[in-house]
Amino acid sequence: MSLSLAEVTAVVHELWPLSGAESWDASGLVSGDPAGDISSIHLAVDAVSDTVDEAIDVGADLFLVHHPLLLRGVTTVAEDRYKGALLARLIRANCALLAAHTNADVVADGVSDILAQRLQLQNSQPITESSEPGTGIGRVGRLARPVTLGHLARVLADLLPATASGVRVAGDYAQEVQVVSLCGGAGDSLLAHPLVVGSDVYVTSDLRHHPASEAREQAKVSGGPALIDVSHWASEWLWLDTAAAQLRAALPGISITVSDLRTDPWDFVVMH
């Protein structure tokens, strides 16, 4: 069975509507003939050399990624630049490229929602709600019972695929936490949000020195959450299996595969 790329793209945008994407985002179809036939789809977080090779090797007609390859503006797709080289390889292999980024972050069963579900948060709700009720960036909810910060960090380490950077924590190991806010991917823009400030711990990725330090110092003055920093790729990779299941239900007869390749950029860490 096959459908046109235009038909498959329409289904993808029903699952993850472009109306939910942030204004700065570049979700949607990147390359491919809308009239072309699609019989297989391969999913990954990132379009990088290894995952592009994998998509081509498994014979995918469509490579569906979370992170847009062309999120930032480019002025060339020459093949001596990696983005041009990747696009050329996909085009020559007749494999289209489509991104579902922030539009897949905000929905029910989206990136942050899946992380909240895997942590078994109760009464989970978005941190910043979109126009559609129940959708929005991040999630905040309660654990069934209080646990130590160290225990929660261990739960996350076991839940997420392993990476060199592991799980970093700012806070007392024995501190009890129950109200958890989280944002899959980079989330330091939410550090000052009232729902984050009012939680016991905030789980996200890519926390930089100054925002993290300032948040922890402010917590000493007026209260605020402990911080758990996890791999950006790992926090979003959990969503792929759910996305694949949704696509299988919506596109019966289309082959759907998921990449297990680690595309976290860090390879090893050296400790004293």
Rank of each mutant, 00 (worst) to 15 (best):
S189I: 12
S165F: 00
R118L: 13
S205Q: 07
E217K: 14
S131C: 00
S189H: 15
A144V: 09
G223K: 07
V180Q: 04
V106I: 02
A226N: 04
V180T: 08
L190W: 11
A174K: 03
G171M: 05
P225Q: 08
A144G: 14
T163R: 02
L191S: 04
G184W: 07
A153W: 07
Q125A: 15
E129C: 03
L182M: 10
A157E: 15
L182K: 05
A215T: 12
D188K: 08
V179H: 11
K220G: 15
S124C: 03
G224E: 01
L115S: 13
L156I: 05
D113K: 08
G134F: 11
S205N: 06
E132D: 13
I127L: 15
N103F: 01
V180H: 04
H151V: 12
S213N: 09
G224I: 06
I114H: 14
S112I: 01
A99T: 06
G110K: 05
G224W: 03
N103A: 12
G198K: 06
H101R: 10
D188R: 10
V203E: 04
Q178N: 12
L156G: 07
G134T: 11
G138P: 01
D109F: 06
A215N: 02
S205H: 03
Y202Q: 11
G136K: 05
S189C: 14
S124K: 12
A170V: 12
Y173T: 13
L121M: 09
Q178I: 00
G184V: 07
E129A: 13
A157C: 04
S112C: 02
T148D: 11
V221A: 07
D200M: 08
A116W: 02
D188A: 01
V196T: 04
D158H: 10
I114D: 15
D206E: 14
S222L: 03
L182T: 12
A157K: 14
D172G: 00
S165A: 11
G136Y: 04
H210D: 12
H101F: 10
T204W: 03
T163N: 10
Q120E: 15
N123W: 01
L191E: 04
R139M: 06
S189L: 13
A99P: 01
K220S: 12
D172Y: 08
